[in-house]
Amino acid sequence: MKKFTLAAVALIAAVSATPAFAGGIEVSDAWARASAKMAKAGAAFLTIKSTGGADRLIAAKAGVSKKVELHTHIKEGDIMKMRRIEGGIEVPAGGMAMLKPGGHHVMFMGLSAPFNEGTMFPLTLVFEKAGEIQTKVMVKKPGAMGGMKMEHGKMKHN
């Protein structure tokens, strides 16, 4: 049983680590934090790479919540303001766009069920040029940072 669980976890990890590709755009490492029972909101983070020209992430779709939007944080002094991104997120030609804690994220509002640690859910990202790309979001623990280290006093939010 334990072996089976381990194999299942390894399989899930392998599947979620596989990048999703289309039109020179690659989406990888999509993850979210587990949400509490009764939680109504969640966020997903991911990496977008362009192997070709510039593109723009303009929307996201998922069946896990009533609304899915692209959000960012604006830091004013020590005040954080979460806002919807108008006009999408730019992916530079041959470059990357990171959706990560403290910055941009895919925001899920009105969750139909909480995100449970260790599970995955499908997410569709809509790009201006590459069109729709499907990916899987891996749910990690509630305080996960997705491999990002917090660096004291050096966090800059542009």
């Binding site: 005040i79 954080m80 979460m82 009105g110 004291h152 966090m155």
Partner: peptide
């Protein structure tokens, strides 16, 4: 199911008499 709350992100250490001792900026390890 939609509004958010803009807010200060400091953490606060308060002594047993209820007085503020120090603050922790957002991103403190």
């Amino acid at each position: 199911e939609s509004y958010s709350v803009d807010h200060s992100t400091l953490g606060y250490l308060v002594d047993p008499h209820g007085k503020l001792l120090t603050v922790f900026p957002y991103g403190s390890t």
